[in-house]
Deep mutational scan, measured.
Amino acid sequence: MSIQHFRVALIPFFAAFCLPVFAHPETLVKVKDAEDQLGARVGYIELDLNSGKILESFRPEERFPMMSTFKVLLCGAVLSRVDAGQEQLGRRIHYSQNDLVKYSPVTEKHLTDGMTVRELCSAAITMSDNTAANLLLTTIGGPKELTAFLHNMGDHVTRLDRWEPELNEAIPNDERDTTMPAAMATTLRKLLTGELLTLASRQQLIDWMEADKVAGPLLRSALPAGWFIADKSGAGERGSRGIIAALGPDGKPSRIVVIYTTGSQATMDERNRQIAEIGASLIKHW
């Protein structure tokens, strides 16, 4: 068994979910400061990975656009189908120029040979490839089937209604394609530690997140040497930005962190900087 497989195998399969305990108010002060700096709502939650206990939260039950963070949930649904014998990671999917949508850096290079389901999930999570996400959504039956998958695992909040790139529209008070920080954190924890997926599929999902190549300016920029992070970022219209992550010291994950913001006029660089500063405070007061 590899070190990575050993790491995931040791994560307990508890489903406990406790009331908020504000253990590190310094980080919450930074979250509130980020709201002021961005002129926007910021949602934040931090869960203990083992117990599910809420360590910190701010606007945990307010809706925020999911943006590309939904791609982790999508690949979780795909892996669930693989575990059930309904899908194969090695199955090759062919597509055409007409299937390509905005921001598809991986799929646009494989119009001739197509891509396997495994490769599409990797592209969707590590590079946030939008066409890969749409092709994967098609394999499970579309956005409503992803919502149904989430409902079946106990998440009655998170919903996907549209395809890429329309799902990033982020209209105020529009519940389409949204989640809440508390719901997303709990669902991510179930996918990474629960019995919904096999150990091999849980390991595959966290491996894809660990290999994320487009979230460098966010939490990763604040991470000390030797820390572990597996994450997925998202960006949308109307100043929307977000990240979901499993992270921790000593090379293994010990907490789930979810950060969303929407409604800002700030630049992407400024949104990234504020999320990175929240991450720096989190690590400082770990």
Rank of each mutant, 00 (worst) to 15 (best):
G90R: 08
D207G: 13
L120S: 03
M268R: 06
T186K: 14
F6L: 10
E61V: 12
S264G: 14
G263V: 04
R63P: 09
A211E: 15
N168R: 02
K53G: 13
D212C: 04
G279S: 08
E87D: 08
L79A: 03
P65R: 01
V82H: 08
W163L: 11
S57W: 11
L199V: 09
Q97R: 14
R176G: 06
L146S: 00
P224Y: 03
E145M: 15
G236C: 02
L197G: 03
R176A: 04
P249R: 11
A225C: 15
K144T: 12
N168S: 07
I283Q: 05
M153R: 08
T179C: 04
E145S: 14
I259R: 00
S233A: 06
G242L: 00
H5S: 10
R63A: 05
P65N: 04
P143Q: 05
K213R: 14
G236R: 01
A132V: 00
D250R: 13
A182S: 15
A77R: 15
I11D: 01
L146Q: 03
S128R: 00
T178A: 04
K144S: 14
L38Q: 06
R189I: 06
W227A: 01
E166H: 13
P105H: 04
K30T: 05
D129G: 00
T178D: 01
P12R: 04
N173I: 12
R255E: 02
R220H: 03
A15C: 13
T187V: 10
I229L: 06
T187G: 10
V72W: 00
V117I: 10
R238D: 07
G39V: 14
A133D: 00
F58S: 08
W286V: 01
G114A: 07
M115S: 04
D250C: 13
N134D: 03
D174P: 02
V29M: 09
R7V: 07
T187A: 10
R7L: 07
Q4L: 10
D231A: 05
D99N: 08
Q88K: 13
T69E: 01
K252M: 12
A77G: 07
R271L: 12
A211R: 13
L219G: 02
T27A: 06
P25L: 04
R63V: 08
I243N: 01
A123T: 03
L167G: 04
L218R: 02
A200D: 15
P65E: 02
F14S: 01
R159H: 14
V214D: 02
G239V: 00
D250E: 15
S57I: 09
R189V: 10
M66W: 05
D83N: 04
G141E: 03
H156R: 14
L38M: 11
P172Y: 11
R189S: 14
T139M: 10
F22L: 12
S240A: 13
K144I: 11
I275G: 00
W163V: 12
T179S: 12
R238K: 14
A222F: 09
L73S: 07
W227S: 01
H110L: 06
I206G: 10
I244E: 00
T178F: 01
C75G: 11
L223D: 01
Q88E: 13
G154R: 05
M153D: 11
A211T: 07
T187E: 02
G226A: 09
S96P: 08
D177Y: 01
T131R: 01
R159Q: 14
K232R: 06
L188R: 00
V257I: 09
I283R: 05
F64Y: 06
G142R: 02
V214A: 08
A124G: 06
T186S: 14
R41A: 08
I3D: 07
I259Y: 03
N50R: 15
G141R: 05
L137C: 05
P253E: 08
M115R: 03
A124P: 00
P217R: 10
R59S: 08
P60Q: 11
D174K: 02
N134L: 01
A16G: 15
L79F: 03
R81E: 07
A200T: 14
I11L: 10
S57N: 04
M66I: 15
G226E: 13
S80C: 12
L28W: 13
P224W: 02
R202A: 12
L197P: 03
R202Q: 08
R81G: 06
I243H: 01
F14G: 06
R220K: 05
A15K: 03
P143S: 05
W163Q: 10
L150S: 05
T179L: 00
P217A: 12
N134E: 01
A200S: 14
H94V: 12
N134S: 03
L223S: 07
H94P: 12
M67E: 03
G90C: 10
M67G: 15
A246R: 01
L218A: 03
E119K: 04
L188E: 00
M67R: 01
A200R: 13
L10G: 07
L223A: 10
R81I: 07
R241V: 03
S2A: 06
L167S: 05
D269M: 11
R241L: 02
S96F: 07
G234C: 05
T186E: 15
T147I: 10
A124R: 00
G52D: 07
I278L: 09
K144P: 15
W286S: 00
D231V: 03
R202M: 06
A170Y: 11
E175V: 15
R159G: 03
Q88V: 12
T179V: 01
S57L: 10
I243D: 01
T178P: 00
L219F: 08
K252E: 14
T267G: 14
L10T: 09
P165G: 06
L247W: 07
A148V: 08
I244P: 00
I243E: 02
T138R: 14
M115I: 09
L137N: 03
P249T: 08
G194S: 15
L197C: 03
P65Q: 02
E169K: 14
V72C: 05
D231H: 03
L55I: 10
D212V: 03
N134R: 03
V82G: 04
N173Y: 13
L219D: 03
G239C: 02
L19H: 14
D269T: 13
K213E: 09
M180I: 13
L137I: 12
E56G: 14
A9G: 13
E164D: 00
M127K: 09
L146Y: 06
G263E: 12
V78I: 11
M180R: 12
S96A: 13
Y44C: 01
A225V: 14
A222T: 14
T267R: 12
G154W: 13
L146T: 04
R255C: 02
A230T: 01
G248V: 00
K252S: 14
P224E: 06
L89A: 06
Q203G: 11
R92H: 13
P217G: 09
G52W: 04
D212K: 04
L136R: 00
E195G: 13
V101F: 10
P217S: 10
T158G: 04
I140H: 03
A170C: 12
E164T: 00
D250I: 13
P172H: 11
E87L: 13
V82R: 06
S201G: 11
G216D: 08
A235L: 05
N98D: 10
F17G: 08
M66T: 06
I93G: 01
D36N: 07
A225D: 13
A235R: 02
P60D: 15
R7C: 07
S221Y: 12
D99H: 09
N168T: 06
V214R: 06
I11M: 13
R271A: 09
A225E: 15
P249H: 07
R238I: 09
P224K: 07
A211V: 07
T187I: 07
D129H: 00
L120F: 03
D231G: 03
V214I: 07
P172T: 12
F17C: 08
Y260A: 01
P143R: 02
T126R: 06
R92D: 05
S264M: 05
R92E: 07
L47V: 14
K252N: 07
Q203K: 07
E119A: 14
P60V: 10
E87C: 06
I243F: 05
I244H: 00
S57E: 12
R162S: 09
I3N: 13
D269R: 11
M180V: 14
S240F: 02
G239D: 02
